[in-house]
């Protein structure tokens, strides 16, 4: 009886939390399909329209170019950060280098610095390099933010792989790089994929640096959202439509990450 009650209590709590968390997102989705006159009404009774999506992709909003910027910046960042971080993580995990702990701490410590502190130096640096308002600048900044995090994450996955298989491969005749290619990467793949998606999401959502370092050409989606605050007021229905465009890819990735995350956690060598 008591147990039964507790189970129902747990369920009710879960539902409550889900509602609280999901409500703003659900409301954004609804608003994205509303006409401007419905945007401020609390009624669920409205005629849905796709006009908002058409509007945000056409002049003057041009969400398309922002999508391209976001996709490019996030993809290139992942493509550079993850291979580098994988090798770094492997080294941190497997090699006894003098000062390894200190180095690892140093890499992590970059995460302790508030972004606001370094955004101005970055701005000045990129101005001298004439890289302001370019995707290159955003990629460089995002790499700096994301790489330590990904190293830290992938190291966790590699640490969990027993060294037996690697040693066996070395004795079977594989060089260190061959071991990484044939043994470590396939075994760490779920973890690396998880980290890649994480890295993509972080970069995709990055706001502060993109806001300061871009003006017109390199504006990314999160920054683009701000442009819907106009002198005519906040265009909620357009902002929501753009919000949906930002959210959907991440939703898809979150679904992927969920599947692979559990795999990443439960995989590992055969004992």
């Amino acid at each position: 009886m008591n147990k039964h009650f507790t189970r129902w209590g747990e369920r009710a709590l879960l539902v409550l939390i889900s509602v609280v968390v999901l409500f703003p997102i659900a409301w954004m989705f609804l608003t994205a399909f509303k006409q401007p006159r419905d945007a401020y009404s609390l009624s669920l009774n409205f005629v849905p329209t796709l006009q908002n999506f058409v509007t945000v992709f056409s002049d003057p909003w041009n969400l398309g170019s922002m999508v391209m910027n976001s996709v490019t910046v996030a993809t290139v960042t992942v493509l550079i950060a993850v291979p580098c971080a994988s090798l770094a993580a492997y080294s941190f995990s497997r090699f006894c280098v003098r000062g390894r702990k200190f180095l690892f701490f140093l890499i992590l410590s970059t995460q302790f610095i508030p972004a606001v502190v370094i955004v101005l130096p970055f701005f000045l640096m990129f101005r001298s390099l004439e890289l302001l308002d370019t995707r290159t600048a955003l990629i460089i900044v995002n790499l700096a933010i994301v790489t330590p995090f990904v190293i830290w994450m992938i190291k966790g996955f590699i640490d969990a792989i027993p060294t037996d298989s690697e040693e066996a491969a070395m004795i079977d005749g594989a060089s260190r790089f061959r071991v990484i290619k044939d043994i470590v990467l396939p075994m760490a793949a779920p973890g690396i994929l998880t980290s890649s998606i994480f890295c993509f999401i972080l970069t995709w959502n990055e706001f502060l640096f993109a806001l300061i370092l871009s003006r017109r050409d390199a504006v990314t989606l999160p920054v683009g959202l701000v442009s819907f605050r106009t002198e005519r007021g906040d265009l909620w229905e357009l902002m929501s439509a753009a919000g949906v465009m930002i959210t959907v890819p991440i939703f898809v990735m979150a679904l992927l990450i969920q599947k692979h995350f559990t795999r990443g956690m439960t995989a590992g060598a055969v004992k």
Binding site: P162, D164, S165, E167, A168, A169, M170, I171, D172, G173, A174, S175, D182, I183, P186, M187, A267, G268, A269, V270, K271
Partner: peptide, 20 residues
Amino acid sequence: KPPKDRDIAMVFQNYGLYPH
């Protein structure tokens, strides 16, 4: 010489198989 050039074979306690 690295292990690969020593022309040895080894059987490990936990077998060290390649699970994938």
